Simulated assay, not measured.
Amino acid sequence: MSITNQKKSQKRMRGIPIHYDELKKKHTVMLTDTAWEKLRASAKRNGVSVGELMERWARSQID
Results as ranks from 00 to 15, higher is better:
Ala41Tyr: 00
Ala41Gln: 00
Leu39Gly: 03
Lys25Trp: 04
Arg12His: 10
Met1Leu: 06
Lys44Met: 01
Lys44Glu: 13
Ala35Asn: 10
Arg59Trp: 11
Ser2Gln: 03
Arg56Leu: 10
Ala58Ser: 09
Gln6Cys: 08
Lys44Ser: 05
Met1Lys: 08
Met54Cys: 15
Leu39Ala: 03
Lys38Ala: 12
Ser49Lys: 01
Gln61Lys: 09
Gly51Thr: 11
Pro17Cys: 02
Asp21Phe: 03
Gln10Phe: 03
His27Leu: 13
Lys44Arg: 05
His19Met: 12
Thr28Met: 10
Asp33Pro: 11
Ala35Leu: 12
Tyr20Ser: 14
Lys38Gln: 14
Arg45Pro: 01
Trp57Pro: 06
Asp63Thr: 05
Glu37Leu: 14
Arg14Ala: 08
His19Leu: 08
Lys8His: 10
Gly47Glu: 02
Lys11Cys: 02
Thr32Tyr: 00
Val48Lys: 00
Ser49Leu: 01
Ile18Leu: 10
Glu37Ile: 08
Gly15Gln: 05
Ala43His: 04
Met1Ile: 09
Ala58Lys: 06
Arg59Met: 15
Met30Val: 11
Ala43Ile: 01
Leu53Ala: 06
Ala58His: 02
Arg12Gln: 07
His27Asn: 12
His27Trp: 09
Leu53Thr: 06
Glu37Asp: 14
Lys25Arg: 13
Lys25Phe: 14
Met13Arg: 13
Trp36Asn: 09
Trp36Lys: 15
Thr32Val: 04
Arg56Ala: 15
Lys24Asn: 15
Met54Val: 15
Lys7Ala: 12
Trp57Arg: 08
Ile18Ala: 05
Arg14Trp: 03
Glu55Pro: 00
Trp36Asp: 13
Met54Trp: 09
Thr34Ala: 11
Asp63Val: 04
Pro17Phe: 04
Val50Pro: 05
Arg14Val: 04
His19Ala: 10
Lys11Trp: 00
Pro17Val: 05
Lys24Arg: 14
Ile3Phe: 15
Met54Asn: 08
Ile18Gln: 09
Ala35Gln: 13
Lys26Ile: 14
Leu31Lys: 00
Glu37Cys: 07
Gln10Gly: 04
Thr28Gly: 11
Arg12Trp: 06
Ser9Met: 00
Trp36Met: 14
His19Tyr: 11
Asn46Lys: 11
Asp21Gln: 03
Thr32His: 02
Asn5Ile: 00
Val29Asp: 03
Trp57Ile: 15
Arg45Glu: 14
Lys26Thr: 14
Lys25Asp: 06
Trp36Ala: 15
Val48Arg: 02
Lys24Trp: 09
Ser42Asp: 11
Glu22Asn: 05
Ala58Gln: 03
Lys25Tyr: 14
Arg56Thr: 11
Lys26Asn: 10
Asp33Leu: 10
Ala43Phe: 02
Thr34Pro: 00
Leu39Ser: 02
Ala35Pro: 00
Thr32Ile: 07
Val29Tyr: 05
Arg14Cys: 06
Thr34Asp: 10
Met1Ala: 05
Ile62Phe: 01
Ser49Tyr: 03
Arg56Asp: 14
Glu37Asn: 15
Arg45Gln: 12
Ile16Asp: 01
Val29Leu: 15
Glu22Met: 09
Thr28Lys: 06
Ala41Glu: 10
Arg40Trp: 08
Ser9Glu: 14
Ala35Tyr: 06
Ile16Ser: 01
Glu37Thr: 15
